[in-house]
Amino acid sequence: MRILQIRKTDWAAGLEKSRKDHSLIGPVRERNNTSKFRELEVGEEPDFSITTTTMSPKSVVFPQSEVMFTYTTDKASPECNIMKVPKNDYSPRAIIGIRPFDAAAMNIVKKNFDTPDYRDPYWCDAYEACTFIGLAVTNPDSCDFSTSTNSGPFSTAGLDVLLVDTGDSFLAEVVTEKGASWMRSAGFDTKADHDAEETIATMRKEAEKKITSTVEFDNIDKKETLDLYNENFWESISFPCLNCGTCTYVCPTCWCFDIQDETAHKKGRRMKNWDSCMFPNFTIHTTGHNPRNTKLMRVRQRFMHKLKYHQSKYNQGIMCVGCGRCVTSCPVNIDIREVCKQMNS
């Protein structure tokens, strides 16, 4: 394991230096005590005081709305009926301060957009342009249950570098060559003391100990799909649900999108917009028939997908990294940990 040390007094200058070959994206605060990831302006530092941003960084590679191509149906134009992919900028960018659970979520979402059969060019090009400079979680939020998923406060899954805040400096665990290259570009090359590995291990244990919220899902995998599907508890679980898409929009692992054509006169563009299994529109057919036409069915779908189907299909755990965002953002407090408990019992 290669560990470097970054003195905090050198941090800002290093970030700026790395801009010569990377744009920088990081967590920032916004209105009304909310936060998200966006491109940092020159001189602007990522806000490391935020543990869980309101909106997850999935938008960095999977924007809420994205133009897939534009077209014109104007016969007078030489480009009539030609679909033109926008010239998007996929130059290197570093995501500074992404938390381990969100990086783990990138790996989950990748399974959907980058398959042996199909490579979604928009998602993959954006993803490949990213270097993920993670920040270990030393003070986990109370709704963080990432130790139960394939993540954890110090997990390096999906990361190129993991930063650990030790007070006056960061210890930087360099995980990939991509990460090493960003570190070089920022001029961070001081070797950490010989006991750095131990320091990280101790801090990791402490952070993991602070996470007291857990879920178990091994029985869900063993149970018959139809037995779970037909459980009585879906009625009481789904009762308060508003079928807003909040839980899925804030979730770093929810990957569903809708395709819409927007036209004005003879010009048009095809959009890829986030969609949500919680919306009735998600499944409506052109005939008007909706196979998932009740709230109960939609709520069941969300949890079955995350906690059952994903396990059955990929055999790599649940489609949830335990960030806790859906728990804190749901206006009616539908708590995935409780649902998981009921499904697993």
Binding site: E30, R31, N32, T34, M55, Q64, L242, N243, C244, G245, T246, Y249, S276, F279, P331
Partner: peptide, 11 residues
Amino acid sequence: TCIRCYACRDA
């Protein structure tokens, strides 16, 4: 900062 989740409408 609206994300068009429509929670306002749905509530």
